[in-house]
Design a protein around this nucleic acid. Structure first.
Length: 401
DNA sequence: AAAGATACCAACCGCCGTCGG
DNA sequence: CCCGACGGCGGTTGGTATCTT
C-alpha cells in the first residue's frame, strides 16, 4: 500500500507541520486560493503532498475555524446527529460551523462515546445499553438495522428497516429533557420513505397532535438540543437525487452556501415555535422518482403558528428562498433587537447573537427578555492551546509578511 | 520525583466516487 | 469503456500532555 500516489514522486515531508510550513501554505492559499491541491505544495514551496496540504488547511489553517472546547450544546447536537447519521463525520461537521470532521471524530472517540456509556446508552445504537445487549428480538432487529446503517453508510439504500433512535439529553440540561425520536423512519435512506413513515419530535412537553401529521410530514431538519431549536432549510436540489447516500445527506446535510440554512433559535423564542413543518401530501410523487418537495408547496408554514406563517407566494421566487427570507428576516430582527455583537470570532459564546459563517450557516442567540444574556452552559473562554494556535496562525500569516 | 496509564489530537493511510482524457 | 488523477471521507496511528500511582 504505502503512500498515496502523489507522495511517490518525490521525497516528501511527513509528520507535524512547522510554523514555516503553515506560513507558506496559509500565505499561498490566502493569495491564490488552493485550486488543484496537487499543485499547491509545489506552488507554495512545500515538501508535502497535496493531500497533506488540503488536510492541514481544512483542519487547522482555515480562517473560519472555531477554536476551543466544544460547548454542551455542540456536544448534544453531535450526539443527536450521530444517532441519525452514524459515523458520517463530514455531514455532522457540516451542521457545526467552524468545526471539522476530524475534530468531531476525535471528540466522539475520546469523550462522547464514554459519556454515553456512562449514561447507559450504547454509542453505536443509541439505545439503552441493557436493551442493546440483552434486548428482545425486536430490539435486536432494530439495533442491528441501526448498526447496519452505520457500518455500511454507503450501502444504505439496500436497508429499509426500522431505524429507531431515542436520544436523551444530558442530565445536566438546564430545562426539560429534550427528546428526539424517530420512529419507523426507514433509515432516512430516501426522502420518499417519509411518505409512509413518520418522524416527530418532542420537546419541553410539546407533544404533536395527531392532526399535525394528517397528510403532513415534519422536516427532519428541525433539531432540538436541550431547549434550543435547530432548524435547517435544505436546498431543493438536495432532494433531487435517488442516490441513497446523497438522499440521506439531503436530510441534514449541507451547506455549501444556500444549500442549508441552519438557524438556532434560543429558548426564549420557543413559545412561538411549533416544531413541525408540514410536508406535502404528495411528498413522494416527485419527478420520476426524484423528490422535489419544493415543487409541491411543502413549506406552508415555518415553525410559526400556521395563520401567522403562511408563505406568501412571491412571483418567480422558489419557495425555499421564501423560507430562507423569512428566516433571514427573523434573524435580522433578532439582530436588531440585540445589538451588541462586535467580533464574530472573538466571542463565539456566549455573547454572539448572529454569526454568519462562510458556510452559509447562522447561529442566533438572543438575550433573555430581562436583558441578560441567555444563560448558557459554561464554555471555556479560550483554552491555552487554542490561543497558542491562533497566535501561531496569525504569526504565520502576518508576522513575517 | 519517577514511571506507567490514560487522554487527547494532529496527521497519516487506504478506500471510494467522480471526472476527464 | 477504461484508466489514472484527484478530492473526500472515515478509520487508525503515533506523539505529546496530563493524570495516577
Amino acid at each position: 500500500m504505502g503512500r498515496h500516489s502523489c507522495c511517490y514522486k518525490q521525497k516528501l515531508r511527513k509528520g507535524l507541520w512547522s510554523p514555516e510550513e503553515d506560513e507558506k501554505l496559509l500565505r499561498h492559499i490566502t493569495l491564490y486560493g488552493h485550486g488543484c491541491w496537487s499543485s499547491v505544495p509545489k506552488q507554495a514551496g512545500l515538501q508535502r503532498c497535496g493531500k497533506s496540504c488540503r488536510l492541514r488547511w481544512i483542519n487547522y489553517l482555515r480562517p473560519d475555524l472555531k477554536r476551543g472546547a466544544f460547548s454542551q450544546e455542540e456536544e448534544n447536537l453531535i450526539i443527536e446527529l450521530h444517532a441519525v447519521l452514524g459515523n458520517r463525520w463530514s455531514q455532522i461537521a457540516a451542521q457545526l460551523p467552524g468545526r471539522t470532521d476530524n475534530e468531531i471524530k476525535n471528540l466522539w472517540n475520546s469523550c462522547l462515546k464514554k459519556k454515553l456509556r456512562q449514561r447507559g446508552i450504547d454509542p453505536v445504537t443509541h439505545r439503552p445499553l441493557s436493551e442493546a445487549e440483552y434486548g428482545d428480538e425486536e430490539a435486536d432487529k432494530s439495533a442491528k438495522s441501526s448498526q447496519d446503517a452505520q457500518d455500511m453508510p454507503g450501502a444504505a439504500s439496500g436497508s429499509s428497516s426500522t431505524n429507531e433512535l431515542n436520544l436523551l439529553s444530558t442530565p445536566n440540561s438546564r430545562q426539560a429533557t429534550s427528546i428526539l425520536e424517530i420512529e419507523n423512519c426507514s433509515g432516512l435512506k430516501t426522502p420518499s420513505s417519509f411518505n409512509r413513515d413518520h418522524l416527530f419530535m418532542v420537546q419541553d412537553g410539546y407533544m404533536p397532535e395527531s392532526s399535525d401529521f394528517a397528510g403532513n410530514y415534519p422536516a427532519v431538519s428541525t433539531q432540538f438540543s436541550s431547549d434550543w431549536v435547530h432548524t435547517f432549510v435544505t436546498h431543493p436540489d438536495q432532494f433531487s437525487t435517488t442516490s441513497s447516500k446523497a438522499a440521506s445527506s439531503s436530510m441534514i446535510q449541507p451547506l455549501s452556501t444556500s444549500m442549508l440554512f441552519p438557524i438556532t433559535v434560543p429558548p426564549s423564542m420557543n413559545p412561538q415555535l411549533k416544531p413541525l413543518i408540514p410536508f406535502s401530501e404528495n411528498w413522494d410523487t416527485g419527478n420520476n422518482g426524484n423528490l422535489s418537495v419544493f415543487d409541491n408547496n411543502v413549506f406552508g408554514s415555518w415553525g410559526l403558528p400556521a395563520q401567522q406563517a403562511q408563505v406568501q407566494s412571491l412571483e418567480g421566487q422558489p419557495e425555499y428562498l421564501q423560507v430562507q427570507n423569512q428566516l433571514l428576516n427573523m434573524a435580522v430582527t433578532l439582530q436588531n433587537q440585540t445589538q451588541h455583537q462586535s467580533n464574530f470570532y472573538s466571542q463565539m459564546k456566549p455573547d454572539i447573537n448572529f454569526i454568519p459563517s462562510t458556510s452559509g450557516a447562522m447561529w442566533i442567540q438572543e438575550e433573555q427578555p430581562g436583558g441578560a444574556p441567555a444563560e448558557e452552559e459554561a464554555v471555556p473562554d479560550s483554552d491555552n492551546t487554542s490561543c497558542v494556535k491562533d497566535v501561531q496562525r496569525l504569526t504565520a500569516l502576518f508576522g513575517h509578511m
